[in-house]
Design a protein around this nucleic acid. Sequence first.
DNA 1: TGCTTAGTTCGGTTTTTTCCGAACTAAAGC
DNA 2: GCTTTAGTTCGGAAAAAACCGAACTAAGCA
Lengths: 171, 171
Amino acid sequence: MSKSNTLEKKKAALIEKLGVHMESQDQLAPLAARIYASLILTGKGGQTFDELVSQLKASKSTVHTHLNSLQTQGRVSYFTKTGDRKRYFIVAPNRLINVIDEMTNNWNRQKEMHLEILEYKSAVNKENPGDASLELDFHKDYLVFLEEAGEAIRKLKVNIIQKQEKNEISQ
Amino acid sequence: MSKSNTLEKKKAALIEKLGVHMESQDQLAPLAARIYASLILTGKGGQTFDELVSQLKASKSTVHTHLNSLQTQGRVSYFTKTGDRKRYFIVAPNRLINVIDEMTNNWNRQKEMHLEILEYKSAVNKENPGDASLELDFHKDYLVFLEEAGEAIRKLKVNIIQKQEKNEISQ
DNA sequence: TGCTTAGTTCGGTTTTTTCCGAACTAAAGC
DNA sequence: GCTTTAGTTCGGAAAAAACCGAACTAAGCA
């Protein structure tokens, strides 16, 4: 707990920077992003409700609401210490795998959208043959891209899981 | 121009669906997402300002504002026909490459953020040695992931460009 | 020169998001 | 049983985003 003043300031500045970044990146409300950023920078030790309230100078109710939604989103979880009623909030373990999964899910949704668009466009082409202004190729290329990007990420996921398993054994 | 009523309805429904999807995906205002969706479904023929206004039942000013920002974002452009003052708005050519570039830029920004976090965390560790609660590994794994994902996407980009060049020659 | 078409600007309304405060609950400790 | 701690709920204020209408410009043409 002997953190120097400079480090406190550095942390506040990084919370701000990370917060702004994640507001748009993860579509979080400003304060939700700050909470999440703070937990990232704090690590496994976690932060209590009150620490977050005072550090971020926000109301209890707002911190509460955002902590809740962060938890249902699977970004945040907490642990307790026996004989201590406080909750210690932390970044959910396995976040890296979650991020990867969210990314692939997202790409799958995009794939479905483009398939549906292709369907619509070929229906239009059937009524208006010889038009060829509908750029089917764009969507086909996009689909190939999504397919291959997904494959690349899937391989990375396997690698990461294997690496994690190895680390657990050697601990 | 002899589009059947069923197709019109199908288009409206798809605009809606694509619109909702892109509102969150690309952080566009509802109407901006509808405009963009409509242009995607319309293809190279493009749509005029007035067509968009009447199809989307929105005000000229709103359509104008959003068309403008879509253009500065590089998502939309337009062409004109000689002797016709109207502008025909279309999805910007080369969108696929743009999307890939945006993705890699995004990942680069994330890399910088995580590097900065690692820097902060090792500064903390220097003041508090033997703590080890700061999970440096998470960020290191994340960086590896971003690095390799970026590499995979870069290869895809090269493939797509080569394919496009081949197509242009054979046309 | 006046009229029409195509697009633009700006002030302000509506809607949505974000946040807060005050009152409340539930559990532990004295 | 009363107090403190830790968290929760809910009604609504404040701020931000999205959208609109009316007045305006600029270019072509009658």
